[in-house]
Amino acid sequence: MSARDNILQRLRAAPQGMPPLPPDVRAFYAAARAALPASTRAARCELFCEKMAFWHAEVVRVTASDWPEKLRQLCVAKNVRSLLYGEHTEQAAALVGAGISGLKPYDRPVDDWKQELFENTDASFTSTRGGIAETGTLIIWPDAREPRLMSLVPPIHFALLDAGKLYDTLFEAMVEQGWSDALPTNALLVSGPSKTADIQVTLAYGAHGPKELIVLLLVDEEETP
């Protein structure tokens, strides 16, 4: 009998115990939540901004009426000459109406304009599905209107986040948004600009993706500075 056969024989002959019970994830998070102060929108916004700053990202509070103009001003300040956007998104008309120069719609397969996309596009603008306050993370669900490369290729990534869709934890976001019902091909969790520690275990930013992440946090008028 080979060593392999001997091992398999011993495994088959071993007494069969009860299968382990799956963890009660809901109970775990309910207990963890009960031990913390009551969650508020203001507290989530503050924690999100704090965590984003830790990850070297910038958060700019905007309102429904002024975010396009604030974005235009940021593009001017950062010398953005071309801004990639989804021309069939809810925000497209506001972008065009703001008079942002160099608007560039993502309107063709990547192979048709790979060089222009990778070498001649300064920044991109995307929507988000929500955010996680605990870790300072954006939730992005790419689709045909806003392909995944929009948040991965240009050196600067502008992202619009509704403060009403900020959650305390990833688990809370998954439950309240019903992720189990339908997931996209790619669900992106973005915390700050791109980073790597592959070289001598030294954390470096902007090595293989956006060097800057600017979050436009959509709040009510009374929540602005």
Rank of each mutant, 00 (worst) to 15 (best):
P105T: 08
A30D: 13
D24T: 05
M52G: 03
V110N: 06
I100E: 05
K78N: 15
A93G: 07
L84W: 05
D66E: 03
S39P: 00
K78C: 04
G131I: 06
A144Q: 15
A92N: 07
W141N: 12
E50F: 00
V96K: 11
F48D: 03
S82W: 02
K70W: 00
S39K: 06
A35N: 10
G136S: 08
A98D: 05
L117A: 13
W55H: 11
A27V: 01
K104Y: 12
I100Y: 03
T137Y: 08
I139V: 15
A94N: 07
L95P: 02
S151F: 05
E134T: 08
N79F: 04
P20W: 05
A34Q: 13
R148C: 07
R145H: 14
V110F: 14
C49A: 10
L95I: 02
I140Q: 09
A77P: 06
P37N: 07
W55F: 11
E46K: 04
A64T: 14
D107S: 15
A32Q: 15
L36T: 03
E90N: 06
V76P: 01
A34G: 05
N79H: 15
L95Q: 07
V96R: 14
A30E: 14
V110T: 13
H56V: 00
A94C: 04
F28M: 11
V62Y: 03
E134G: 06
A42N: 06
A32M: 10
F118G: 08
T126D: 12
N79K: 14
V80T: 08
R81T: 06
Q91T: 10
I140P: 05
L152K: 07
G86A: 12
R148H: 10
V96S: 03
T128K: 07
T128V: 05
R26D: 12
T40D: 06
A30G: 00
M150C: 10
A144R: 15
C49H: 00
K78L: 05
C75E: 02
L47G: 02
E146N: 08
F54W: 12
S82P: 01
P68D: 03
F48H: 04
P19T: 09
F118R: 13
L84A: 03
R148M: 09
R41P: 02
H56R: 14
C75T: 08
D107I: 02
P37G: 11
I140H: 12
S65R: 12
E58R: 13
R108M: 13
K51S: 01
A42S: 14
V60M: 10
T135N: 15
D24A: 07
L138G: 08
K104V: 07
C45A: 10
A94G: 06
R129Y: 10
H88N: 14
A32S: 09
R12A: 14
Y106K: 02
E119I: 01
A64I: 05
S151R: 09
S151P: 09
S39R: 07
G136V: 02
A93C: 04
C75R: 02
R72F: 00
P20S: 13
K104S: 11
G17Q: 11
P20T: 09
D143S: 12
N79E: 14
M150R: 06
P109L: 11
